[in-house]
């Protein structure tokens, strides 16, 4: 059920600010693609254009094309709500619904989509929590508030919530930046497991993480403050980290700037 993403000529703006400029790339299905680059280079902004979350910020807009297999996410008849169900997202900080139980958090998206039967909900909640490697830790306290879990568990709960609606693509915006190393490892293991089923795009500040989890890596950069972010190059992760085409990429990888 994973799909290929093909982006062409994409620009994003915040009000009058040109945030990212003319990005074109292909994201392969059933693989992990990592976005790396210095702060403010637009990688998170670009990620958010892939499920139309960019436009929920007041004054933000997008130009260009994002094809999910053969459908344009920005096509005139496309409802952003449907896009976000198809392209799931995990945020930098874990954000479970604070007033809901663990169970209800995972079931939230399903209930929106009209799944009402208890047995079906139970089945999918269990499956999603297992898929997020969280089931064993929470199966005895599904009725407890999600906010009571540790940071790493909360983040896996958010991943379970995202995959419960069976998206085609899973976007992750620095999912480990607020977590300790052990929780980070758990999430990375999970990403490796999930890529068998989903197209995964992950933004990360951590180059080792990109090298560990991704198949392909895209490097973003800005020419200077106030300038729009650009895609410098995208290639197999091994190639980017050993023999990149661009000088700027090599400088960044080797820690000469950024």
């Amino acid at each position: 059920m994973a799909k290929r993403i093909e982006v062409s000529g994409l620009h994003a703006y915040y009000g009058g600010t040109h945030a990212i400029e003319d990005i074109s790339m292909t994201v392969e299905p059933r693989s992990v693609t990592a976005f790396i680059g210095p702060s403010g280079c637009g990688k998170s902004t670009f990620l958010r254009t892939l499920n139309r979350m960019h436009e929920v910020i007041p004054g933000a807009r997008v130009e260009g094309k994002v094809m999910l297999d053969d459908e344009d996410l920005y096509g005139p008849s496309v409802d952003p709500v449907a896009v976000r169900r198809t392209v799931g997202m995990v945020f930098q900080r874990p954000n479970p619904f604070p007033t809901m139980s663990i169970y209800d958090n995972v079931a939230a998206g399903l209930k929106l989509n009209g799944v009402r039967r208890k047995s079906q909900l139970d089945e999918i909640v269990e499956g999603s929590l297992k898929g997020a490697n969280l089931w064993e830790e929470v199966k005895d306290r599904l009725g407890k508030p999600g906010a009571g879990l540790s940071g790493g568990q909360q983040q896996r709960l958010c991943i379970a919530r995202a995959i419960a609606v069976q998206p085609q693509v899973l976007l992750m915006d620095e999912p480990c930046s607020a977590l300790d190393p052990i929780s980070t490892l758990a999430i990375e293991d999970l990403i490796a497991k999930l890529k068998d089923q989903y197209t995964i795009v992950i933004v990360t500040h951590n180059m080792q993480q990109a090298a560990r989890v991704s198949d392909r890596t895209a490097f973003f950069n800005i020419a200077g403050t106030g300038k729009p972010g650009k895609l410098i190059e995208i290639d197999d992760t091994s190639k980017i980290f050993t023999n990149p085409e661009q000088k700027a990429t090599e400088d960044y990888i080797t820690g000469r700037f950024g």
């Binding site: 449907a82 896009v83 799944v115 069976q166 085609q168």
Partner: peptide, 14 residues
Amino acid sequence: MSSPSTSLGSVSAG
């Protein structure tokens, strides 16, 4: 399970 959404344009009418 729920139909894999092939058409993006649809959110249930309800």
